[in-house]
Structures are given as C-alpha cells and as structure tokens.
Design a protein around this nucleic acid. Sequence first.
DNA 1: ACGGGAGATTCCTCAGACAAGTAGAGGTGT
DNA 2: ACACCTCTACTTGTCTGAGGAATCTCCCGT
Lengths: 223, 223
Amino acid sequence: MNAQLQRHPLAAQVADALLRRIRAGEWSLGHRLPAETVLAARLGVGRSTLREAIRELAGKGVLDSRQGAGVFVTALDVAEDWDAVLRRADVAAVIEARIAIETEAAGLAAVRRTPADVRGLRRALAARAPAGRPVEGHVDADMALHRAVFVAAHNEVLVELFDAFVPRVRTTMVHMLRVRPLASEEADHAAHAVLVDAIARRDAPAAAAASRTHLTALKEALA
Amino acid sequence: MNAQLQRHPLAAQVADALLRRIRAGEWSLGHRLPAETVLAARLGVGRSTLREAIRELAGKGVLDSRQGAGVFVTALDVAEDWDAVLRRADVAAVIEARIAIETEAAGLAAVRRTPADVRGLRRALAARAPAGRPVEGHVDADMALHRAVFVAAHNEVLVELFDAFVPRVRTTMVHMLRVRPLASEEADHAAHAVLVDAIARRDAPAAAAASRTHLTALKEALA
DNA sequence: ACGGGAGATTCCTCAGACAAGTAGAGGTGT
DNA sequence: ACACCTCTACTTGTCTGAGGAATCTCCCGT
C-alpha cells in the first residue's frame, strides 16, 4: 500500500496502477472500466483523484471516457515516446546519433540552401554571439543555429529528428556549461562561423567536416 | 472515429485552449503558468475542470505540476507519432535520413564490432543470399542484415532510429521490387559483402563508403 | 554576508451536490 | 408479434468548499 517513495502524487500513482492492470489484461481492449465511484472506493482514493488519473491516461491515449456510458480502454500500451528513449539513453550515444544526422544535414544544406536559408543562418549566428548571458539563453541560441542548418537541408525527417533530440541535448548542455564553462567563447563562435561559411559557399565536404569536428569535441567534453 | 461529431467536454476544451496558447508562445518553455485559482477564474471554469485539463496535458508530456511550486511548461508541442511522420514524409527524405544514420553506424561498427557481431553479420549475409523467394522474405532478410550493422555499432539510439524506419522502408522496398526487380542479384549481394568485410577488418572509412554508395543507389532507384 | 525560520503561495486530496448524457427496461399502439 | 416511445437507473461532467502538504520568499539575527 504505502510505497516508500511518495514523491509521486497520488493521482499519478493511481494512473500507473491502472496502466499496469490494463497491461496485465484485467480490462481488455474496448472493455469498460468499473464506475468511477466504485473504482475510487475500491482503490481507496477520492473520486477527483481517480478522475485525474483517468485524465492522465486519456492524455496518453489509453483511456476514453464518455459521459453517461463509462470509461473505455482504447489502447493496451503507450506508444513509446522518443523523448523517453533519449532520456534513458547514454549521453554519448545521443551525441553520436546527433553527429550522424547533423553531418549529413550540413552536407545537404550546402547543396540545397537558398539565399533565404543563408540569411537565416547568418542571423542565428549573430544571435549566438553575445556573451555573459544566462546559460539557458546561450544554449537556446546555439540550438537555434543548429536547427537552421537542418532547415537549410530541406529534409523534414531530419528536422523532426533534430527536434526530438533538442530537449535531451539542451538540458545536458545547460548542466555542463554550469559546471564547466567554455574555455574560449571566440574559438567556439569561430567554429560555428566556419560551418555557416561552408554552407554559404556550397562546400558540402567542408560543411560536413566542420560539423563533425565541432560535435566530436562536444561529445568528448560531455563524456 | 467520430471525433468531429463528438461534443468535447469542458475539460478537453480547456486542454486544447491551453495547448494552443502554449504553442502560440504565451507561456514559453520552462515558464510557470498562473496559479490554478487565477487561471480557472480567468477561463471561467471550476478548479477541478482546469486541473483535469492540466492532467491531460501532463499525460501528453506538455505540462508538469509540482506541489507548492506551480505548473510548468515542459514541451512546446506534443511528441508526434514517428510512424505518422515517416508515412507522410517523402520517400527520398526518409532514405536520406537513413543514409545519415547508417553510414555513421557502419563506421562505428567497424570500430566497435565484437567477434560475435561479425558472426551475426556473416550469418545475416548468408541468409540474405537465396534467390527466387517471395519478395517479402528477401526484404526482411535484407533488413535483418542492415539491423545487424546497427547492433554492431553498439549505440542504442541508432538502433531505435533504424527500427522506427523499418516499417516505412520495408513497404516501399517491397512495392519497388514487385514493379521492377533487381537487375543483378549477384551485384547486390556483392555490395553487401563488401560492407560486412570492411566492418570485419575494422576499416571504418571503407564501411561508411560502402554503406553510402549502396543506399544512394537505393535512393535513386526509389525516386 | 550568510544561514534560519515564519509566513505566504501553490498544488494535492477529499467530500458532497447537482447537471448532463446514456442505455436498458418496460409499456403502448398497431 | 413487432416497432416505437417514455421513463428510470446509472454514469460521467462540473462546481464549490475545506484542509493538508510541499515549496518559495523575505525578513531577521548573527
């Protein structure tokens, strides 16, 4: 009953318990759950708490409640979220995957970039420059520049992949920069300028190489 | 589904409204929302209704509420289903993303492969060989070989990425091979053998290059 | 300048009441 | 016997009020 770790709110605990029982097959797909008042009493929680747990699972797409009819099971398990996979994974593995997609994106961007893309890249590069800001601001500006590279590559799948990586990479970088700030702001900025210039002059190998060098250094800094 | 005819409960409407305002930038990433009592009054709904809306968004991973602190924005949009993204995306874009992760994986595999990995690769290569089978069987054997490369790279994120790509790539390849079978079975098999050999003798550049030429040819065949 | 404590703020949980919607039982007319 | 209608029991939806627990802020003493 009383779990030693109470850090999760009761509603979240109830949601977990329900999901576990659904997975176990207690209520199969399409089946109706017991009425809220009954289920709440059986679980020993208030009806509001149970309702919030149901809402949480509804948000995940597992349950669906219809007024007057009942609460129904619409899925047996949650589609695994990429964010969850990345959170669980090793930081080095995440960076390696990022190297994979970003070097390729840099090469494609050098080939496909439009004048508007180049303007966007230069603007993001300039926004990255100011020093002495809070760490979050710097990291966000950095992320914006890297995203601009993917946009210039004109490949929606790669952009989506990068976006999936952002939350995990962002928190890791913020944490790292707090513990150990960059040795040289200028060198870091110069490395990014090299990448943007390579894309601007359509030099695909140079763009890919610049991207790889930068990210490999990042990987070693974080490992 | 008859979602368009269904009248949404108030809580669901509130959840949609909140998500829309979050996307619009009214509350940025990491920012705190107004207190429940304030927000409920402003929206003209009861606190429990607002709380259920918050729970629903928490289930989607957009919001996170901490007792005593407040409700915070943890993501700007809902993690979209990857299968849906890939289904919608251009085939060429999918293959390009696959090139990105697979060339990198081939290079890493050449560095990190264990003797067991090499055995697995050779077994998968042999299983790929037999001709005159139904198309699906051939494609599945091909996928198994490519997956073995990712396994040998020892990077869980890359493996997960490949697995996410499999359904889409598989159906496309099956379709293509039905319309226009391979010109030369032997040449195709030889290309894969080159890749496996490069990994076996720890030649990372050769492995990456072999992977890239093979997949680029595939991309042009499908485009 | 630094640490500690009290108060304010915020979310968490419960209970009760009534409204709104659904589904099935049972009656009615043909 | 069959189709249709109504009525009722049940279920979810919404609101209000209360008190508890966790957190943050600010002031105070050292």
